[in-house]
Design a protein around this nucleic acid. Sequence first.
DNA 1: AATATGACTGTCT
DNA 2: AAGACAGCCATAT
Length: 108
Amino acid sequence: MIDPEEYTELVLRCAESVPPGRVTTYGAIAVAVGDVVGGGGPRQVGNVMARHGGPVPWWRVVRSDGTLPSSHQGEALARYREEGTPLKESGVRTRVDLGAAFAEPSLR
DNA sequence: AATATGACTGTCT
DNA sequence: AAGACAGCCATAT
C-alpha cells in the first residue's frame, strides 16, 4: 500500500484538473491514480473525496453512468447550471452528459 | 484478526 | 428504467 497522503493528494489534483463545464468519473480517477501509485479502486477514491473533498470541486466527479453521488446531487446540479456543464435530462432525472462532458483526469 | 461500511461499478432481473 | 446482487479495496471499530 502507498502513503495515504500521496494518494489523497493525487486524487485531489485530478479533481482540480477537471476544467469547468467538464466532469470525470471515480473509476477514471482510480485508474489514473492507480496507474502511478498502484492499487486503489473507485471506492477508495470516493472515500478520499468524502474526507478531503471539501476544498476541491467534487461536483465535477461523477459516477460511471453520469449520475451524481447519492448525496449532493442537488448541490452539484446548481453548479452545473452555473458552469454550463452538458446535462442530459431523462424525464425527472437529470444527469451529466458523459459523452460530451467527460474529461480524462490528469495528474497535472 | 474479523466484521462492517462506503461520495463505486458492472451485470442480471 | 429501476432495484437486487455481487465484486473490489481501504478504513474504522
